[in-house]
Design a binder for these strands. Structure first.
Length: 270
DNA sequence: AAATTCTCCTGAAGGC
DNA sequence: TGCCTTCAGGAGAATT
C-alpha cells in the first residue's frame, strides 16, 4: 500500500526520467479512477515541460511552467517509466507519454487519481489542510503532544489522519506504535509528553528505514523502474497475528481500529 | 468539533 | 470444481 516511503521511492525513481521532458500526449485506457481522469488532460498537458517532481504527503506533483499534474497511488497504484508504446498489461490505465518514454499508472483497485491544476500547489483542495511532513522539523514531540490534547480517539487513528501528519498509512502506523511501545487503541489525549517524543521518533525511524529498503511490497507496489520494495521483510508487527512478538515472544494480537486492521503486542505495548 | 461510518474497486482467500 | 462471502485499504464524504 503506497504510504510515504513508497510514494517517495516512486518519486525518486521516475524523476530522472521525466524532468526536462515535454509531454507528447496522455493516453487514457480507463478514466475511471477515484475521480475521473480529466477528459481534456491530453490536450491540456501536451507540449508542457515537466520542470520538477515533488511530493506532498502521498501526492506526487509533476510541475510544469503552467500547472501541476497530481498523481495519487491510492492503495494499489504504481507508476513506472516504460518505453512509449510498450504493450499494455491489465490495470495499466494511464500513460503520460514523454517522447520515447512514458510514465505508466497501473492501479488494479482504481483508488488512485490523476488530476491537473493550475492553482498554486498548496491552494488545491486536496493539498490544503494537510499536516506537516513527518520527516520535517515541524513534526516533533511538542507538535504531536499539542495535537493529541483533548482527543479521546485512538492514537493510531490520529497519526493516520493526514491533517495531523501526512504519509503514515496503516502499515507504518502499526510498526511505529510497536517501536514506540504504545498500544494503537490508546486514547490520544492520554499520551504523555514522553510518549509523544517516543512516537515521533518511532514514526521517523520507521519511515526512514522503509525508505532505505525502497518501501514495502505486499502485492502490487513497484518503484519507478518496476522493482518491488524490500521492507516487508522488516515488518515486526503488521500482519503477524498469532506469531510470537519479535521482542518478547508474546503472541501478537489483532484488532480493528477505525475500520483498519491493527496489530500489537500486549506485553511490549501499553 | 470530533469521531465514526460509508464509499469507491478488484483480487485473493476461505467456506461449503 | 465452483460459487459465494469476506477482507484488504487511502482518504474524501457523509453522518452521528
Amino acid at each position: 500500500m503506497p504510504e510515504l516511503p513508497e510514494v517517495e521511492t516512486t518519486r525518486r525513481g521516475v524523476e530522472p526520467h521525466v524532468v526536462g521532458k515535454a509531454v507528447t500526449e496522455v493516453v487514457v485506457q480507463d478514466a475511471r479512477l477515484r475521480w475521473p481522469v480529466p477528459p481534456d488532460l491530453s490536450r491540456t498537458l501536451s507540449g508542457q515541460t515537466i520542470i520538477a517532481v515533488t511530493r506532498r504527503g502521498k501526492y506526487l506533483l509533476f510541475r510544469t511552467t503552467r500547472g501541476i499534474l497530481l498523481v495519487h497511488l491510492g492503495m494499489s497504484g504504481s507508476l513506472r517509466v516504460v518505453s512509449a508504446g510498450a504493450p499494455r498489461l491489465p490495470h495499466e490505465h494511464v500513460d503520460i507519454v514523454l517522447g520515447a518514454v512514458a510514465m505508466r499508472l497501473r492501479d488494479p483497485r482504481r483508488f488512485g487519481a490523476v488530476l491537473y491544476t493550475e492553482d498554486e500547489a498548496m491552494a488545491h483542495p486536496l493539498l490544503r489542510g494537510l499536516g506537516p511532513e513527518p520527516l520535517s522539523r515541524e513534526f516533533d514531540a511538542t507538535y504531536l503532544h499539542r495535537q493529541s490534547r483533548g482527543r479521546r480517539g485512538a492514537v493510531k487513528s490520529l497519526i493516520m489522519d493526514a491533517r495531523t501528519v501526512v504519509g503514515v498509512g496503516n502499515i507504518y502506523a502499526n510498526e511505529a506504535l510497536f517501536r514506540a511501545g504504545i498500544r494503537p487503541g490508546r486514547a490520544a489525549g492520554r499520551l504523555s509528553r514522553n510518549d509523544c517524543d517516543r512516537l515521533v521518533k518511532a514514526i521517523v525511524a520507521t519511515l526512514e528505514d522503509a525508505l532505505r529498503e525502497g518501501g514495502t511490497t505486499l502485492r502490487d507496489f513497484v518503484n519507478g523502474t518496476g522493482e518491488p520494495g524490500h521492507f516487508a521483510f522488516n515488518l515486526r508487527i503488521y500482519g503477524r497475528t498469532g506469531e510470537p512478538c519479535c521482542t518478547c515472544g508474546t503472541r501478537v494480537r489483532a484488532t480493528r481500529i477505525g475500520n483498519r486492521s491493527s496489530f500489537f503486542c500486549s506485553s511490549c505495548q501499553r
